[in-house]
Design a protein around this nucleic acid. Structure first.
Lengths: 348, 348
DNA sequence: ATGAAAGCGCTAACAG
DNA sequence: CTGTTAGCGCTTTCAT
């Protein structure tokens, strides 16, 4: 009990190591009877193959790396759940790299961890990688897929943030709003994470197209959390005169923070203030948030499935020179506009 | 470039493979000059060691497994962040097992994934493992540490949930409340996760000690999310007559859901209803939630550090029979009672 | 269909 | 201090 090698299984089954290996890994050229024998012996001994040995010998790791800025944020943990589920079902391990804010940590992960040949593939979420960094990864023959971020040369799954931000803003404009504020991301975040800028550009494009003025003092930034946006929104809404009639927050979390802040000032949503977000946070339901639902969990699951397909297809080619034809596809993931009760016509 | 083995480095440095191995892994018995040579050659070739080969040969994996019910929930993602940071700093990989609700998945993770000998240790969060399951893990000579859950025979880091729940309830009682409701966890959750029951017991003990009646209809359950508790709290607070004057929610998320529900009914917190939670969710600040702050991130980091120490100490003993003296310590992590503005004396 | 044998890339005694 | 020699536990040709 406890430790049992393939050798033990072979002995117990009265077969050779080679046959047991083939039998257990579902390969062809094994008689039904031998396969039975091998499986029985393995079960009896509680045999679990050493993945190190098997990886070393076969070149397949059954392990994919997932790089995220912070699992503590809603969007990323959603993606992680999606990726995790798909991987677990396929018998793959998931190695998580929670890189956080510090650039050094990002460097270490990119230059050391990811290159240790332990991973069959890597999924990078909302991470802006340089062409060189991507090449470095591709150089070790590992497919990469990006979620929610632009990865030149690698496959990506994403939504069209610019267009959707524009759509969200247009919803407000369509209701008759002209005095619209925007909550965007912090400068801090923009470094490796240019999404706030993209959504902001969408907002500004919609405003410009409608001929509405974007007031600089009505574009405030926060850290993409409820509490951060709450604080920013309080500042935004503090002055009763010259108050916007609507807010487009660059994320649902920030939209929710805004709604909480509005309530503090006695502002009714949507009668006094309309608020729209983006992403599809579960909490949006509770506060009746109008939003555009992207399904990060689904995106994660899709990314994992695509990767697994690629890996199954490419089988083994470890020593070979050519990358497993990444074929860099860029898919747009479907979204859903959810009109709930946080948006309405502006007050008269 | 791209692929370079230790052999290439040895050739380039004019040293033997063995010396290069020693030099690069910082071992003793290498002349400064040789070490320099080896490092230079490695750098020039962009050599990154294969962890499979190295693990297979040395028995050390530089990889710890982390098992959590759901990274999507605040508490768990906090722990993951803590563990991740400590591990990354130590050069360790983190393999994440997000087991979710399905018992089958839990089984698979426990019986297959964790036994694949890829892990040096495992951290299990809020997971109730049977003695047999723990023994199975210990049998493969891997230390286990549990966070927030009872693991017979393994080391654990946890808070005294029963006592703290009691303390929280007593805070309410001390303010003069007698009509106190409790929001506990779903039956669903109780299966592998008996924390709700423990906190509930603490609540009931405090009530009994004070001679207050625990009304069955005032103990409602939810799924430990804001939105779930919001729904449950709406039911609880719906009837204006016979309404509790205070609520002790078994988690901050549920306390926040309760506060949101209260607002919907026009109830002011704390004037009309006092609410107290437990855990230390960041969002608690925004709504002024009185709570008991446990620092899950810190707990995760601590668990990881303890494990790393054990691993460094035990060095190698792969083939040896005896476990690396787990010495099953059970530490209580410090907490902090945070009185904010969601609790006050009951309405007259 | 099966077994023998040759590694996968590195570490760890063991001699020098 | 350094090189030589065995493996770590599997997978995989290659014969049979």
């Amino acid at each position: 009990m406890g430790l049992a090698g393939i050798k033990d299984v072979a002995d117990r089954a009265g077969l050779s190591i080679a046959t047991v290996s083939r039998a257990l890994s579902g390969k062809a050229n094994v008689s039904p009877k031998s396969r039975q024998l091998a499986k029985a012996a393995a079960a009896e001994l509680g045999f679990v193959p050493s993945y190190h040995a098997s990886s070393l010998a076969s070149g397949r790791n059954h392990n994919v790396g997932l790089v995220v800025p912070s699992v503590h944020r809603w969007y990323f943990s959603s993606v992680v759940e999606g990726v995790s589920g798909a991987l677990l079902d396929a018998g793959y391990d998931l190695t998580l790299y929670n890189v956080g804010d510090e650039p050094e940590r990002r460097q270490i992960v990119l230059n050391d961890f990811l290159l240790r040949k332990r991973l069959d593939a890597v999924i990078a979420v909302a991470l802006v990688l340089s062409e060189a960094e991507i090449q470095q990864l591709l150089a070790i023959h590992r497919p990469i897929v990006g979620i929610g971020g632009a990865l030149a040369g690698a496959s990506t799954i994403r939504i069209d943030d610019a267009r959707l931000a524009r759509t969200a803003t247009e919803h407000l404009i369509g209701l008759g709003h002209t005095r619209i504020a925007h909550i965007t991301g912090d400068g801090e975040l923009n470094r490796d994470f240019k999404l706030p800028g993209i959504r902001r550009a969408g907002f500004e494009a919609a405003m410009a197209a409608a001929g509405h003025r974007v007031r600089p003092e009505w574009t405030v930034s926060a850290d993409f959390t409820i509490q951060g946006a709450y604080a920013s929104a309080r500042t935004l809404l503090a002055t009763a005169t010259e108050r916007p009639t609507a807010v487009f927050a660059a994320s649902d979390e920030m939209a929710i923070g805004t709604i909480l802040a509005a309530r503090d000032f006695g502002l009714r949503v949507p009668q006094d203030l309309s608020v729209i977000g983006m992403d599809g946070h579960e909490l949006g339901e509770v506060v009746g948030l109008t939003t555009i639902n992207q399904d990060p969990r689904g995106q994660g699951a899709l990314a994992a499935r695509l990767l697994l397909e690629t890996l199954d297809a490419g089988a083994k080619r470890r020593t070979k020179g050519a990358p497993p034809a990444p074929e860099a596809t860029d898919r747009e993931y479907p979204t859903e506009f959810l009109v709930r009760s946080s948006t309405a016509v502006p007050p008269v």
